[in-house]
Computed example of a mutant assay.
Amino acid sequence: MDHDILIAGGGIAGLTAAAAFGAAGFDVLCVDPAPPVASREAPGADLRSTAFLQPAQAFLAEAGLWERLARHATPLQTMRIIDAGGPAPDARLSRDFEASDLSPDLPFGWNLPNWLLRREMAARLQEMDSVTFRTGVSVERLFTRTDEARVSLSDGRTLRCRLLIAADGRDSALRQAAGIDVSCTRFGQKALAFAVTHPIPHGNVSTEIHRTGGPFTLVPLPDHEGRPSSAVVWMEHGARAAALHALDVPEFEAAMTERSAHQFGPLTLASRRAIWPIIAQHARALSSERLALVAEAAHVVPPIGAQGLNMSLTDLKVLRDLARAAPERLGDADMLARYHRARITDIRARIGGITALNRVSMLQAPALRDLRAAGLAALHGAAPLRRALMQLGLGQTR
């Protein structure tokens, strides 16, 4: 056997998986067609940010990643939801959800830019004797048997492993090769992602502003060039998003400042703009012979409530725990069936909940937007329900 585990995909989920399984004592090879883009200004840099929620911290620490990430992380102490659905695009209702309601010492989570995450995670893998990370290489063919997977790589090599992990994205070639179907919902939306600076400090508050088309979310980042900075995800109907993406910078800055309900003063664009379509998608099965699907190969959700990557980390933790509990059964049919059963119900429930929230955020009719605002006020005002929903969002079961 050439490796215990082969991971296809060197995005954040794939790099995390390599670190986690390597730290658990497995021999791991992770491959990706392209090297990580590890600079904010480099062509192809992922300009989104990722919020790691509370439960992720221990898992990242066990993988040896948190020590590298902590010094770059911006804590998320408050989540503020604003309804700006009145006649003018101004805040008419604002409610804060405080991490202190759940724990006195910990924030909801920590936010980091994706390009920086990939830089630090790739550096961690270089330190690990049990992990090999190869770029410029992809999986081309897959042949599985009950006791092993044989993988043909683009460099001409054929390797044998006990478990193949597909972390190769929403259009996963490995998922398709295994014949696993997906259920997909399209919303007619696109998301713009970029970074901004602003004169008013964010105070470690993540701010989600609802009007129509989808939420406009500002997530705290470290100061940039001496000014407060935030990562922004702006979801809009597809044609509107494309038109915004094409605007000259001054026009775009005026539009995003208005859409932000002027919460942080005039917004200044501090990065390139990325755009991508919004879908909700999940694989009908999370495994096949010697193959496990994780992250966006298994599920895709709209960027609401920091659920996407945190669902992916739960995939990895469940899979890692199963492997560590019975290493002699790594990748066998029983282990992979357990993985599917442990994750599929939660994945479907979270996708359903996020899909519903996204449709509410898209409302255009004034009367329905009024109902949305009233619902937010009622939810926040019921303290037990508020705390229960926050715990659910964090993935806590207590």
Results as ranks from 00 to 15, higher is better:
residue 138 S to I: 00
residue 113 P to D: 11
residue 94 S to Q: 14
residue 112 L to P: 09
residue 76 L to P: 03
residue 130 S to H: 01
residue 117 L to W: 03
residue 136 G to V: 00
residue 93 L to Q: 12
residue 64 G to V: 00
residue 123 A to F: 00
residue 107 P to I: 05
residue 57 Q to N: 02
residue 66 W to S: 04
residue 104 P to E: 08
residue 95 R to I: 03
residue 68 R to K: 14
residue 108 F to Y: 14
residue 93 L to R: 12
residue 79 M to T: 13
residue 143 F to I: 06
residue 133 F to V: 02
residue 142 L to D: 02
residue 113 P to L: 05
residue 74 T to Y: 10
residue 99 A to T: 04
residue 60 L to H: 03
residue 85 G to D: 09
residue 125 L to M: 08
residue 100 S to K: 15
residue 109 G to F: 07
residue 92 R to P: 04
residue 66 W to G: 07
residue 133 F to P: 07
residue 126 Q to M: 06
residue 82 I to D: 02
residue 145 R to V: 03
residue 102 L to C: 03
residue 88 A to Q: 15
residue 60 L to E: 06
residue 117 L to I: 08
residue 142 L to E: 03
residue 148 E to Q: 15
residue 119 R to H: 06
residue 95 R to V: 13
residue 93 L to P: 02
residue 108 F to L: 06
residue 107 P to W: 08
residue 90 D to K: 14
residue 114 N to P: 02
residue 127 E to N: 04
residue 121 M to S: 07
residue 121 M to V: 01
residue 93 L to Y: 08
residue 76 L to A: 13
residue 140 E to R: 08
residue 109 G to L: 10
residue 82 I to V: 15
residue 87 P to A: 15
residue 94 S to G: 06
residue 77 Q to Y: 15
residue 98 E to A: 13
residue 105 D to M: 08
residue 59 F to G: 05
residue 97 F to D: 04
residue 99 A to H: 05
residue 110 W to M: 08
residue 64 G to C: 02
residue 86 G to T: 07
residue 143 F to L: 14
residue 73 A to G: 11
residue 72 H to L: 13
residue 103 S to P: 05
residue 125 L to I: 01
residue 67 E to L: 09
residue 143 F to W: 11
residue 94 S to I: 10
residue 87 P to E: 12
residue 121 M to R: 03
residue 146 T to K: 12
residue 130 S to I: 01
residue 91 A to K: 03
